[in-house]
C-alpha cells in the first residue's frame, strides 16, 4: 500500500500531462494538474523553510561548532520572511488604494525590496564573480596541451576569450580585409555559430532523448528509484 499508491499517483498524473499535449479535449485537465503541481511545489518551499529552521535550531540548542552562524541564518530568514509576507513598507496599488495589501511585494521602498537589492543581489553576484578567479586558477592547474583534444579545447577557449576583448581586436586588427575572417573577433563568432552550435545541438538532442527515456521509465513504473530503498528495476 505504501508503495503502490504513490506509484499509481505518479503514473496517473504523468499520463494526464502527456495526454493533455496530444488530445485537445484533455488540455484543461493538463492545466489543472499543472496548477496543482505549482501549488504543491510552492508549499514545498514551506517544507524547505521548516527543514532549515529545524536543523539550525537544533544546532543552536546543542551549541555546535559555529552555532553563531546558525543564529545569523535564522535571524535573516525571519526578518526576510516577515518583510515579505507582511509587505512591510509597501504602499497599496493605486488602482485599489483602499486595500493596504494590494501593493506589489517587490515595489521600491518596501523592506523586502531593500533586502533583495542590498542583501541578496550583492552576495549572489559577488559569489558568481568570485568564480572567475577559481575557474582561471583551476584551468591554469589542470589544462595541459597533451593531445589533439586538449589543444582544441585550449585554443578555442583562448580565441573566444581574446575575441571578446579589446586586446583581441588590437592583436589581429592589422590583418587585411580579404583575411578578415581570421581576425580574433570574427573567428570567435564563427566558432560560436558553427562548431559550438553543432556540439551544443548534439548535446541537447542527447539530453532530450535521455530525459524522455527516463521519464517514460518512471511513468511505466519500470524505474522506482525515486521511492527510495533501492527499488529500481
Amino acid at each position: 500500500m505504501k508503495r503502490l499508491v504513490p506509484l499509481w499517483i505518479a503514473i496517473i498524473a504523468g499520463f494526464a500531462m502527456l495526454l493533455s499535449a496530444f488530445l485537445p479535449a484533455t488540455e484543461s485537465l493538463g492545466e489543472t494538474f499543472g496548477d496543482v503541481f505549482n501549488v504543491v511545489a510552492a508549499i514545498a518551499f514551506v517544507l524547505g523553510a521548516g527543514s532549515l529552521a529545524k536543523i539550525n535550531l537544533a544546532k543552536v540548542s546543542r551549541k555546535d561548532q559555529g552555532w553563531g552562524y546558525a543564529v545569523v541564518t535564522l535571524v535573516c530568514f525571519a526578518i526576510t520572511l516577515l518583510a515579505g509576507l507582511g509587505k512591510i513598507g509597501v504602499h497599496p496599488n493605486p488602482n485599489f488604494a483602499a486595500l493596504p495589501w494590494s501593493g506589489d511585494k517587490e515595489s521600491e521602498g518596501g523592506l523586502f525590496a531593500w533586502i533583495y537589492e542590498y542583501g541578496l543581489v550583492p552576495i549572489t553576484a559577488t559569489m558568481f564573480a568570485l568564480l572567475a578567479f577559481y575557474v582561471a586558477s583551476a584551468a591554469f592547474r589542470a589544462f595541459r596541451a597533451k593531445n589533439v583534444e586538449a589543444v582544441l579545447l585550449l585554443s578555442t577557449a583562448f580565441i573566444v576569450l581574446l575575441g571578446r576583448t579589446f586586446a583581441g581586436v588590437v592583436l589581429t586588427g592589422w590583418l587585411p580585409d580579404w583575411a578578415s575572417g581570421l581576425r580574433l573577433e570574427n573567428l570567435s563568432v564563427y566558432i560560436m555559430q558553427v562548431f559550438n552550435t553543432a556540439g551544443n545541438r548534439a548535446i541537447i538532442i542527447g539530453i532530450a532523448l535521455g530525459v524522455a527515456a527516463t521519464s517514460l521509465r518512471i511513468l511505466l513504473g519500470v524505474d522506482r528509484s525515486w521511492m527510495g530503498s533501492g527499488d529500481a528495476k
Binding site: I43, Y69, C76, F77, T80, G84, I123
Partner: peptide, 18 residues
C-alpha cells in the same frame, strides 16, 4: 554565507506564497 542561506530561503518562500 549564513545570511544568504536565510535570506534566499525566505525570499523564495515569499515569492511562492504571493
Amino acid at each position: 554565507e549564513a545570511a544568504i542561506v536565510g535570506v534566499s530561503a525566505a525570499y523564495w518562500m515569499t515569492i511562492g506564497f504571493w
